[in-house]
């Protein structure tokens, strides 16, 4: 999984997207959680070796 400046984190599964955001100190509307070409909501549970990308949404001016 990639977080903003291309940092990679691993978590034990199964784990929900909401729990991952909480552990990384993100509020749900501060980031897009992307899997392939879809966005994931907080309740989605990741299993096995699933990978997601997290992108912050702040304007970069």
């Amino acid at each position: 999984m990639t977080v903003d400046k291309r940092e990679i984190y691993s978590f034990d599964t199964p784990i929900s997207v909401g729990k991952i955001l909480k552990r990384l100190n993100f509020l749900p509307f501060e980031v897009l959680v992307i899997k392939g070409n879809r966005l994931l909501t907080r309740d989605v549970v990741l299993r096995d070796n699933e990978e997601i990308e997290i992108k912050t949404v702040y304007s970069k001016g």
Binding site: F29, L32, L39, V57, S59, K60, G61
Partner: peptide, 22 residues
């Protein structure tokens, strides 16, 4: 609309925007 909603729209529409900070 919020920053989050705008980002979601840009993602769904596949807009190619500047993603680096000034």
């Amino acid at each position: 609309v919020t920053e989050y909603e705008t980002s979601v729209y840009a993602f769904f529409k596949g807009l190619d925007f500047v993603d680096i900070e000034c």
